[in-house]
């Protein structure tokens, strides 16, 4: 309740004042609890806040899983600027957290510094690499499920054209697009087809980006221009911008379908569930749960956790009907990726 109340007020007031003056972090929840017997697991978000419907939130879901499964207490601090990272980490160190999960590469430096200053505390960082003996990097081979999604899109397109676009041209985004395009390429090589990918060029390593992760209208207009060029399946890797593409797909009355990203969007975005043929899953919550387990067992530091198809840290959720033949092919490709015979990057 508090979340909604405050968020509404914050947005309303900022609008009334007429200044886009104040920050945009979303909301927190009521979590300050005395450390449980099993330990205290804490999260520091990046500037997106915990309600970002993205990795901050997914990481927090992981903590909730840990709370339910391991009986740990959990706590959360949101950051509104980059300058909050270090003090927030310090607050949690002072509070005696057994494991501190930080989210995103923006926190990498602050996490490293805090870990070096506090060698007895365990840290885990989402989407970044290990930087100290007591830090576990949580990384994801998202190219693997994207490859599968690309393969599936190439197999099911009726126009012979599929599309993808990103939010900003940064590695955690590009890796999806590259995997997707590689999957299409692999399908073409296998089947002798020439399905075209809009929005990502493997040779040039460049493609279409909306420029941010917030403006949904850009998602709509990119999806529209891709549809105008003939694409019937689009894979947005742009957070909420992708919802603009989904809206366009809704309006297209079935002509355009969308592949969701990060979470199963047929579930997370139920009102538009019909437009999602599949979702590429990046299971941050599972990784965080694992990281908490490792940290409590003092085994997590020094090496990265890498979510793969093999360990289930990434995956594809297919939410449309596909032929048994295609399913078999996808299974074979999955096996190929796992055993390394198929290169997805």
């Amino acid at each position: 309740m508090r979340k909604q109340t405050l968020k509404g007020l914050a947005v309303g007031l900022v609008a009334v004042v007429g200044l886009a003056a104040c920050g945009s972090s979303d909301s927190s929840s009521d979590t300050t609890v005395a450390a449980g017997a099993a330990g205290l697991a804490c999260e520091v978000t990046d500037i997106g806040g915990v309600d970002d419907k993205g990795f901050n939130q997914n990481a927090y879901d992981g903590l909730k899983l840990a709370e339910a499964e391991l009986g740990v207490s959990i706590d959360l601090l949101e950051s509104t600027t980059d300058a909050d990272y270090a003090p927030n980490l310090q607050s949690f160190v002072d509070k005696g957290c057994n494991v501190i999960v930080t989210v995103g590469f923006l926190l990498a430096d602050a996490t490293k510094a805090a870990a070096e200053a506090n060698p007895t505390v365990q840290f885990a960082i989402v989407d970044s690499n290990t930087s100290a003996p007591n830090v576990q990097g949580l990384t994801f081979a998202t190219d693997q499920p994207s490859f599968l999604a690309g393969y599936m899109a190439a197999a099911t397109t009726t126009t012979g054209i599929v599309g993808t676009f990103g939010g900003i041209n940064i590695p955690p985004v590009v890796i999806f697009m590259q995997g997707f395009a590689k999957g299409v390429e692999y399908y073409n090589a296998q089947k002798g087809t020439s399905v075209k990918v809009l929005g990502w060029d493997i040779a040039k390593q460049d493609g279409t980006f909306s420029g941010d992760f917030s403006d949904q209208t850009k998602g709509t207009s990119i999806a529209k221009s891709m549809a105008d060029e003939g694409a019937d399946i689009i894979f947005p890797v742009a957070g909420p911008v992708g919802l603009g593409a989904s809206q366009f797909a809704m309006d297209s009355a079935g002509k355009v379908k969308i592949i969701g990203v990060d979470v199963d969007m047929a579930i997370s975005n139920p009102t538009q569930a019909e437009v999602y043929v599949a979702s590429v899953l990046k299971k941050i919550d599972a990784a965080v749960l694992q990281a908490v387990k490792d940290a409590l067992a003092k085994t997590g530091g020094g090496t990265d956790y890498l979510g793969t198809l093999e360990n289930g840290g990434v995956g594809v959720s297919i939410t449309s009907t596909i032929t048994p033949e295609l399913q078999a092919e996808l299974d074979a490709v999955t096996a190929g990726i796992i055993d390394g015979s198929i290169v997805t990057k």
Binding site: L6, V14, V16, A21, C22, S25, D26, S28, L77, S91
Partner: peptide, 25 residues
């Protein structure tokens, strides 16, 4: 102070945004 408030109480940091907006308003 907002950081401290977030740590010590269960009042979310958004209150700071609200306070600043109110002051300006």
């Amino acid at each position: 102070g907002g950081r401290q408030m977030q740590t010590n109480s269960d009042v979310p940091i958004d209150l700071i945004i609200v306070l600043r907006a109110l002051i300006v308003m």
